[in-house]
Every structure is written in structure tokens, then in C-alpha cells.
Simulated assay, not measured.
Amino acid sequence: MAKIGNIELGDFPLLLAPMEDVSDPPFRALCKEEGADLMYTEFISSEGLIRDAVKSVQKLDIFEYERPIGIQIFGNDIESMKQATEVTAAANPDIIDINYGCPVKKVACKGAGAGILQDIPKMVRMTAEIVKSTNLPVTVKTRLGWDDNTKYIVEVAERLQDVGIQGISIHGRTRKQMYKGEADWSLIAEVKNNPRMHIPVFGNGDIDSPEKAKLYKERFGVDGVMIGRASIGYPWIFREIKHFLATAEHLAAPTFNERLEAARRHLEMSIKWKGERNGIMEMRRHYTNYFKGIAHFKEFRMQLVTLDEQKELFEVFEAIKAHYAAEGMLSN
């Protein structure tokens, strides 16, 4: 049984990764319905929270049905991160997560996210201060190291545990790799197998099928897996993995009707939560996966990713429904 603080997550929990402009409340609602055991928000800038920036504060929105839910913060200044922790705790999440893994230039090159992997002593000091400034369980999301020469994750995980974190998720790549190449889970397994570690260790990177989740569970012995890119436009990945782990059989793929309805609901919630412009723009990355493998869909996809008024978009959904109903695809 994996536990973070007093939060029981089951035998092999599936976590939704914190992804910028993806892991928002509309998408989290769909992932929760499909079996995600623990979800994290998009990462939130500590400086933005302190300044009361609208976009940062909006990301603190969490809902009862999402629990357990973690809010993830990032920054490079220890004092700002402590203040942001207090602001975050007031939003009443179950967990506060620290982002030490984001590889993008505008974050990492300012010493935040994965950038702090170049200064491990500061990483440990910052973590200790955050743990001290809240009664909530604190977890960390990080990478193996900054580059191939600095893969210190086994020692780093132990030091972070020693200053009080209660769970760690490790992406099996360095910052330098970004998202390229194959994730190396052998070092994640080393962290898990370190006899001094007693907090849950979650693996992240390349889990894109039920078979891979089962293989990595057995091969690397982690306490659970965190799923990121494979869930974009495909929240069913959670239920498919759970079913496969329990039965060693594949669950039937979502029907065309399920895909269509999920995408339409997702768009509706996205507009309601972010407003028409942002809601429409940020949905675009999901459509490819929602309708992957559907024959003759290219023209509809082009409309979904180029139209920018909700009335037109919902008309496209009606047109898709009519077209594929005529093809006999809505009943299967």
C-alpha cells in the first residue's frame, strides 16, 4: 500500500503528471473519472503567487471530487518558495509538490525546475524550508540529474527524504535530454531499492501502454507510475492500465462515441474555466489523440485546430457526429 503522509493511494497508484497547459481542472476531471489515483496541478510560479498574478492564482482552483490532489509550485528563491507554500496551503490541497524537474529554458535557466539540479545543496535547503513551513505532506518531482555527468539522484532522493519529503516522482531523463531518447528507469529502481529509503518512489517517463506499465512495475519495483504525455487527449490510459494489471487482459478501447463525447465535454469545460480564447487554444493539443486512428478525420481535425469561435467548433462536433453516424460508427 503506497502512502503519502496519511493518504492511502492503493497498491500500485497511477499518478497524473503535472503538465503546463494540460493538467488543468477540465482535463483532471476526465482523468479522475477514468481512474487516476493521485493528480497534480499544472506547475505554479512562486513569484506569481506572491504577486497575486491572475493566471497563477487561478491554477490553485481545486475541487472536492479531485481528491487526493497535489498543487505543484516552482521557483528559484527560497524565501519566495516559503511564502508561496503558505499561499498554496490556504487553497487546501492534500499535498504540496515541488517542481525540480521542468526542463524548459525559461524555467531551468533561471535556476528553477530542473535548473536546481546544478545546485544540490540549495535544492536540499529549499526543500527543508518548504517542509518546515507547512503541515501538509510535501512531495518532489525531479529528474536523474542535469546531464549524464551529474546523475546523483540516488543520493539526492535520500537527502530530500532526510529533510522531510513524503514521496518522490522521478522522470528517467536528465535535463539535457529534455524528452528525447529513452527514459532510464534503472536509476529510479536504485532509488527504490536503497535500503535507507522508506517513502514511496514513483517512476515517470515513457509509460504509454498497459503492457509497459506492467513490465516496469515488475522490472523496477516502483511504488506506482506517473503518466504524462500518454494521457493527453487519452484519459482512458488510466482505466486500461488498471484493468491490465488486474486481469492481464486488454480492456476494449473507447468507442468512437466515447471519444467524441469526451472531447466535446473537455472543450466545454475548458471554455467555461479559461474563457473562450484560452479554452479553445489549449484544447488543440488534445484533438490528435482523441481522434487518433479514425479514418478520414483529417479535414475535421484541421477545423478543430484552426477555428477560434466556440459556436463554430460545436457545429463541427455536430458535423462529425452526423458524418460518422451515417458511416455506422456511433453505435460501436
Rank of each mutant, 00 (worst) to 15 (best):
G221L: 05
E190Q: 14
G224D: 00
P235S: 09
G233H: 04
D184Y: 01
I188L: 04
P235K: 07
F244L: 07
G228D: 02
T174G: 12
R229P: 09
H198N: 14
E211M: 12
I241Q: 00
R219Y: 01
H198P: 00
M178S: 14
K176F: 09
K192T: 06
K192H: 13
H243E: 14
A230Y: 05
T174I: 11
R196P: 03
F244M: 08
F256T: 13
I188A: 03
S209G: 04
A248C: 12
E249I: 13
G224N: 06
F256K: 10
A213P: 03
G181F: 13
W185M: 03
M178I: 13
H243D: 06
K242M: 07
K217M: 02
W185L: 08
I199E: 08
I188N: 00
E249T: 14
I241T: 02
G228T: 02
A213S: 07
K180V: 12
R196H: 14
E240A: 07
I241R: 10
N194S: 11
D223I: 00
F202R: 05
V201K: 06
G203R: 00
E249K: 15
A252I: 11
S186K: 07
G233S: 05
R196G: 03
T247V: 14
E182L: 08
I199M: 08
E211G: 07
N204K: 09
F238A: 01
E240V: 02
S231A: 15
T255C: 13
V191T: 02
Q177F: 04
H250D: 13
Q177T: 09
A183I: 10
K176S: 15
E240D: 06
T255S: 15
R259C: 10
A252R: 15
Y234W: 07
M178Y: 15
R196D: 13
R239V: 08
I199W: 02
A246Q: 15
I232V: 13
F244A: 03
V201A: 12
E182Y: 08
Y234P: 00
A246N: 11
G228H: 06
V191A: 00
D184I: 02
R196A: 15
N257G: 13
Y179S: 11
A183W: 01
G181L: 06
S231L: 01
P210M: 06
G221E: 07
H198R: 11
Y179A: 10
K192W: 13
K180R: 14
E258S: 10
A253V: 12
Y179N: 11
R196T: 15
F244K: 00
M197C: 08
G224P: 03
P254N: 14
R239C: 12
R175Y: 12
D208H: 10
E211C: 06
I199V: 09
R219P: 08
S186Y: 03
K176D: 11
H243A: 10
A253E: 15
G221A: 08
G181K: 11
F238I: 05
T255G: 11
F244W: 01
Y179T: 09
K242D: 05
I232G: 05
M178Q: 15
E211N: 09
K192L: 11
V201D: 09
L251P: 09
G228Y: 03
K217A: 00
L245M: 05
T255I: 14
W185P: 01
T247P: 11
F244R: 07
A213L: 04
T174S: 10
V201Y: 06
G233T: 03
D206P: 00
E258I: 07
V191N: 00
